[in-house]
Design a protein around this nucleic acid. Sequence first.
DNA 1: TGCAATACTGTCCAAATGGACAGTATGCCA
DNA 2: TGGCATACTGTCCATTTGGACAGTATTGCA
Lengths: 212, 212
Amino acid sequence: MDSMPALTEKQQAVLEFIAAATDQNGSPPTLREIAGHFGFRSKTAAADHIRALQAKGLLRQDAPRRARGLRLSGMGRRRPRLDIPIFGAIPAGFPQDRYQDAKGCVSVDLSTLGIKSTPRTFALEVRGDSMIGRHICDGDLVVLEHGRPPRSGDVVAALIDNQSTLKTYVQERGKPPHLQAENPKYPQLHPAAELVIQGVMIALLRKAESQF
Amino acid sequence: MDSMPALTEKQQAVLEFIAAATDQNGSPPTLREIAGHFGFRSKTAAADHIRALQAKGLLRQDAPRRARGLRLSGMGRRRPRLDIPIFGAIPAGFPQDRYQDAKGCVSVDLSTLGIKSTPRTFALEVRGDSMIGRHICDGDLVVLEHGRPPRSGDVVAALIDNQSTLKTYVQERGKPPHLQAENPKYPQLHPAAELVIQGVMIALLRKAESQF
DNA sequence: TGCAATACTGTCCAAATGGACAGTATGCCA
DNA sequence: TGGCATACTGTCCATTTGGACAGTATTGCA
């Protein structure tokens, strides 16, 4: 009982060609192009392989009759990707145009890590070591989601003194929620109610210092 | 003298839509789809924008009359991406087929972070807290490059007792290089010469725990 | 003032494309 | 031996799609 249905050699070859051609041309091949590449005189031959690959879950075709509508799916290759804008700091609220003030973009597929694509996902470069207790270092890139309700213990970005700062969101029974830094050097506490929480941390990226 | 020719707002919007739609659908939009998205009643409007973008070098169309033949070019978008295989552990040496035993794949564009695409890049899931002193936690995903000569202070993956373990590579003047853990609980030292160094850490990914 | 670029509406057409059918041949398995 | 999946050839057809034309309106610039 394979989780991955077995592919015939031909089917494997067709799948690889589709992946390669898509990569090379920027759009998937047509049935006739596939047939042409393999020397088939009939595009139906290609269509048959496509059908088989679709049945085995390796290809998708979201819309019928769509030109070049083939799409690698499953573990075939090519996962959904997420362009996350990086902000140096978020002045206030949530920006209208996510890409307007972005310093750059990290394009990450973290489906493996369970991150869903949301238009409200963004990244922040960490300044300072106030979250060192959570092993978040200066220079780290924190991926956050705006609008997600924080749970106690979540790391959140909050607007304090007109600056985005990372804190831990703490909610204890019978007390109002508050934010706290994770560094004994800065034992600040902030009542959460007075602050704008800009996002809840969902992932972290770090570049090793000793690059080349 | 701009290196990048100025784009009008509309042109910018069209370019972004093409990028987004390509990403979402797996193939670039047609003229009519573009027109539809912006509420144009005539696809010629879209075609005009396309022409302008082509003239400014931001779009390509390699072949005429090719369905969905649009392609982002120049630095319009589309950074080089890197598919990094994730290993639970590396038994020995460096595997022939990088994707053979991979538990999954993270697809990351880290050009922003300065990571170059190398066929010898791979990722390892961290087990244990032996590197907690470097703020590398259990469950983190460490991106490594095989074959890169380590410098003193680099984090490396080494094969110890037939298991991949992360250590710090230390090279002190006049002494042989050795590896050390970054946790006072485990003050192990290993002479580097006896060990196989599988890779040098170049980046780190962490998923927040509270992913509901 | 006039000209060029931008930003569209609308129409006609030919090529590109996917889908459905009707067959043929081969190998494998019960 | 029959049945079934794979692997093709060939044809017809409705849509999809890009391209070319003919116009209109607006804006900025010389």
